[in-house]
Amino acid sequence: MDYGHSERPAGAAPLPTAIKILVAGGFGVGKTTMVGAVSETRPLRTEEVLTETGVGIDDLSGVEGKTTTTVAMDFGRITISDDLVLYLFGTPGQDRFWFVWDELALGAIGAVVLSDTRRLADCFPSIDYFEGRGTPFVVAVNCFEGARQYRLDEVQAALNLDPGVPVLLCDARQRESSKEVLITLMEHAMKTREARRGAAAATD
């Protein structure tokens, strides 16, 4: 869809293909850190200002008395080539901002769910959300100091994950480690796409 007309042959800059990836997980689990670790720019923050009247039913319960509230999202970019760009969005941590997630998740190719084994339950809502939407995701266990080391299959079982969902350890502060998480996600998203296509073909 195009908006507006240009005077410059604005076709000049060809449109890249955009890949959108979400980084989700509970409060303080390392979302901002991961977006910053892989992004080519300093991590940017974008904000949505919400008004009580503008938001449906119960979304703002818990912030009564506030006319407006701000939801911050992290934003990062990785330019793969002139015509291929990856956008990373760190989702807002609080559950009551699900509707922001809905916008973010539109067209997302997949998601990283960050988890902290000291507070594993914090990532349940993210997992439920992506399972419900059918968005391919991987679970990245962020290794905080002092956290007991769990085996990945223990985490897999504790989270009651579909056996196909990759679970891996990471250090969100490390670029290489965060890159590895994204690569694993892309591989998983590609497999999921192939499997769905196969399933669709089988029912035709």
Partner: peptide, 22 residues
């Protein structure tokens, strides 16, 4: 303008390009 997305792409070449690029 809207960027191109992977939704309608016929093959996996974009996925592979992203993986190799990363």
């Amino acid at each position: 303008r809207e960027p191109r997305t992977t939704a309608g792409l016929p093959d996996d070449s974009v996925f592979e390009a992203v993986i190799n690029g990363l």
